[in-house]
Write a protein that binds this DNA or RNA. Structure first.
Length: 308
DNA sequence: AATAGTCGCAACCGCCAGGGG
DNA sequence: CCCCCTGGCGGTTGCGACTAT
């Protein structure tokens, strides 16, 4: 049943970093024959590499017109904005950044932007202020206490649940052992859940939390890593509300952390909004307004859901 | 100067969708 | 219509470079 490997494992396929000689061979082959039919590329180019590896090397490193310098503030804005609107669709995001690959964008997000968002009081998963998340947790706990009678019915449903407004308030993994070992890993886990199950039960009331394993538990644990910084941030007289901060890391479009799909046209609109904007505030306002408009038009619905 | 810890990037892995036979 | 191959995608890992002690 398992799919055979893309490369003949009997043949000694080299792994790891590419040498300049290998790069030269691949470049020479592609310049002569073009891209495509990657499975035959290693043999024809005289490389002891997997075809997939060749394609990746070309796409992420050797391809012409790739930028290898650092990301500009404008690119950062674009990444954060698009991530807030479409989630971790790195290829879509990268397509809006000339010279950048999805791997570049993904790495930059994972290593820099998500951490900076967290440090500035924005949950990198939902793009909402941590204060809102804290409030959600509190209200959830109150709600949970009042609705324990319904928990038996909810126990039968294993999918993460998201409120119709996009808030990820009550995701649980009844049969999964969630044991976050670091903020980045747990963030990644939550991100995956949020993005792969966007508004999975829109229109239906969220079930109450389960007493055994509740995602809020580890969210709270995870969030605690930077809640102190958030409190300090909010306590500071100079601190602006997170959603109006002039820094890139403070943007928090309301009610949309679901990673719901946006069409190419909508992505382009977002990009144009960033490009046309002469200031972060107007840019943010534009995004927020558009987000509110979309959420009101398609409350609780996403094309992903429509496909189900 | 040596060592441990952290960071960032490159590459790999597994899954999935689309297209062709 | 079905199966298989290929390419694409997102998540994860490995490792070298850098920094702090």
């Amino acid at each position: 049943m398992t799919r055979p490997p893309c490369c003949d494992e009997l043949m000694s396929v080299k792994k790891g970093l590419w040498t300049p000689e290998e790069d030269a061979k691949l470049l020479a082959y592609v310049s002569n024959h073009g891209t495509g039919n990657w499975t035959n590329v290693p043999k024809r180019a005289g490389l002891k590499r997997c075809g997939k590896s060749c394609r990746l090397r070309w796409t992420n490193y050797l391809r012409p017109n790739l930028k290898h310098e650092g990301f500009t503030p404008h690119e950062e804005e674009l990444i954060v904005t698009l991530h807030a609107n479409i989630g971790s669709r790195w290829s879509v995001i990268a397509s809006q950044l000339p010279g950048r690959t999805d791997n570049d964008v993904k790495n930059y997000w994972n290593t820099k932007l998500s951490k900076r968002l967290a440090l500035n009081g924005i949950d990198p998963v939902t793009h909402r202020p941590i204060a809102d998340v804290k409030e959600s947790i509190t209200s959830l706990q109150i709600s949970a206490a009042a609705t324990t009678a319904a928990s038996a019915a909810a126990r039968r449903c294993r999918s993460p649940h998201v409120f119709a407004n996009g808030d990820l308030r009550n995701t649980h993994f009844a049969n999964d052992v969630i044991s976050p070992t670091s903020s980045s890993s747990s963030s990644s886990t939550a991100s995956t859940a949020a993005n792969q199950n966007p508004i999975s039960n829109a229109g239906t009331p969220p079930p109450p939390p389960l007493p055994d394993v509740d995602w809020v538990d580890f969210l709270a644990e995870d969030a605690s890593l930077y809640l102190e910084e958030l409190d300090a941030h909010l306590a500071s007289p100079a601190a602006a509300p997170a959603s109006t901060s002039s820094t890139i890391l403070s943007k928090a479009p309301p009610g949309d952390g679901d990673g719901g799909f946006r069409s190419t046209e909508e992505v382009s609109d977002i990009v144009q909004g960033v490009t046309a904007s002469d200031g972060w505030s107007s840019f943010v306002d534009g995004i927020l307004n558009r987000d509110r408009q979309l959420m009101s038009e398609f409350a609780g619905l996403t094309p992903d859901l429509d496909l189900l």
